[in-house]
Computed example of a mutant assay.
Amino acid sequence: MVVPSFSRRRALGSAAAGVAALAAAPGFSPARAEAVPARRQPAPSGTYRIDLHAHVLPPDYRAALLAHGHFTIGGYPTPTWSPDEAIAFMDYYGIQAQALSVSDPGVSFLRGAEANDLARYCNDYAAQLIRTHPSRFGAFAVLPMPDIAASIDEAIHALDTLRLDGVVLLSAYDGVYLGDPRFEPLMIALNQRRAFVFVHPAAIPADAKPELPLPDFMEEFTFDTTRAATMMMVTGTTQRYPDIRFQLSHAGGTVPFLSHRISVASQTVLGELWPQDLPKPSILDIQHQISRFYFDTALSGFPAAMASVLAVTSRDHIVFGSDWPFSAATLPQTGDHDPAPGLSEIFDADQRMEVERHNPLRQLPRLAEAVNA
């Protein structure tokens, strides 16, 4: 079976596929050579995967995006989405369930009551989808950010009443990154609920980034995830709210690669300028904080990315993500229906089962109960 939308080969998708191929090119020398099998190992069989980076575009939400000029997301043409397409995709690629989330720009292109109503619509839509297909879908709630008071109300409704599996936050809102003191009241509410928070990158405004002929999803998205993670660490957010579990998109952006540079910042001249009201992180502290993040495999299921993640955290902090439907043009269509064959270049079958199933289910107990019923 071939899902119809998979055949849409766009130029941008082909470019991303080329970048992904480079990550798996011969000659790659990982930091932990002993963790990489000598040759590709077989993947587990069956429909077992749990996808923690998958997107939903409810009908009215997609219509609102287009009405406000969002014809592309991160440089990728705004895709269509339906429950039937999602289930067909999952069946084709051996995915048992997806935890759905609204991608960039969330509902932040609206303000006030319009943003509140659209967030509530998306979350109610997701809750109904879970009721209809309890073993196939979970969801992370979208919040009407950057309105903190309204976002707290919506988070409480989504987590306590709708029983969604967590929330999705963008890396920044109006140029203000996660970790900023303005977000403290929301973090308090999420920490009280021991929430799972999926951090998704946001597009940088055109007047705040270099003019390059590259779509945001290729590089800028990874950089913005890095900025958000770094700000949450250096401002103490990840220390003050240890019961929030943060999932970083796309293998954490460049966090693993920059982990040492981030950790030594306070030991340089910057340490002399460190604000007195913020904890001054040490090298070991930053390394510990990085190790506590969860890193998904979306568009990153290759030795170069995974070896970097394994250098900063343990395997139980890696979770599977497909980034569908935005990744539709780059997913392999092979006889074994493996959505991330590059994972078998660094993980054996048991390890892939851990990354692609056990780790995600440990973080989302409601979904675990539903898929194991």
Score class of each variant (00 low, 15 high):
Phe347Thr: 08
Ala305Asp: 11
Val36Asp: 07
Leu214Tyr: 12
Ile204Tyr: 04
Arg362Trp: 08
Thr237Ala: 15
Arg120Leu: 14
Ser322Leu: 11
Leu278Arg: 12
Pro134Ser: 03
Gln363Ala: 14
Pro146Arg: 01
Ala64Phe: 13
Leu331Arg: 07
Asp153His: 04
Tyr177Thr: 05
Leu12Arg: 09
Ser103Gln: 06
Ala67Ile: 05
Met232His: 12
Pro105Met: 02
Asp84Tyr: 03
Asp336Pro: 01
Asp51Pro: 10
Asp323Gln: 09
Ser5Pro: 14
Leu214Phe: 14
Asp323Phe: 13
Phe140Met: 08
Glu356Gly: 04
Asp336Lys: 01
Ala115Leu: 07
Ala126Gly: 10
Ala54Pro: 11
Thr297Pro: 12
Tyr76Arg: 04
Asn123Pro: 03
Pro59Glu: 10
Ser82Tyr: 04
Leu12Ser: 14
Pro213Gln: 03
Ser314Thr: 01
Pro58Thr: 02
Pro59Gly: 11
Pro341Glu: 00
Gln98His: 09
Gly94Phe: 00
Ile95Trp: 03
Ala158Arg: 00
Ile73Leu: 14
Met231Ile: 05
Ala340Phe: 02
Ser135Leu: 05
Leu248Arg: 04
Pro275Phe: 05
Ser327Gln: 09
Thr80Gly: 15
Ser291Lys: 01
Val107Arg: 01
Ala189Thr: 01
Thr132Cys: 05
Leu118Pro: 14
Ser151Cys: 09
Tyr241Asn: 03
Tyr121Cys: 13
Gly69Leu: 11
Pro134Val: 00
Ser135Lys: 11
Phe223Tyr: 13
Arg362Gln: 13
Ile73Asp: 02
Pro215Leu: 09
Gln267Ile: 06
Arg111Asn: 12
His250Gly: 13
Arg10Tyr: 13
Pro201Met: 02
Ile87Trp: 08
Phe246Gly: 08
Leu214His: 10
Glu34Lys: 06
Ile50Gln: 07
Val255Gly: 03
Ala16Leu: 15
Pro185Val: 07
Ser14Glu: 15
Ala99Pro: 10
Ala155Tyr: 07
Ser45Asn: 06
Glu369Leu: 05
Phe89Thr: 09
Lys280Asp: 06
Leu361Trp: 07
Leu65Tyr: 14
Tyr173Lys: 03
Val176Met: 12
Arg261Gln: 02
Val3Pro: 15
Gly75Ala: 07
Met218Ser: 11
Pro30Val: 01
Phe137Tyr: 05
Ala189Trp: 01
Leu248Ser: 11
Val234Thr: 11
Ser344Arg: 09
Gln333Pro: 02
Asp153Tyr: 00
Ser322Glu: 12
Pro365Ala: 04
Val2Asn: 14
His317Trp: 01
Val142Ile: 15
Ala88Glu: 13
Ile87Glu: 11
Ala139Glu: 14
Leu169Ser: 03
Gly301Thr: 01
Val2Phe: 13
Ser282Phe: 04
Thr132Lys: 10
Ile87Arg: 13
Arg8Ala: 15
His70Ser: 12
Phe140Ala: 08
Gly166Val: 01
Ser29Phe: 07
Ala203Tyr: 02
Asp117Pro: 05
Ala189Asp: 01
Arg193His: 08
Ala113Tyr: 02
Phe198Ile: 00
Val107Leu: 10
Met187Tyr: 15
Pro83Asp: 03
Ala149Ser: 10
Ser135Pro: 00
Ala35Thr: 06
Ser108Trp: 05
Pro279Cys: 08
Ser103Arg: 03
Ala16Met: 15
Ala115His: 07
Asp350Met: 00
Ala54Gly: 12
Ser291Cys: 03
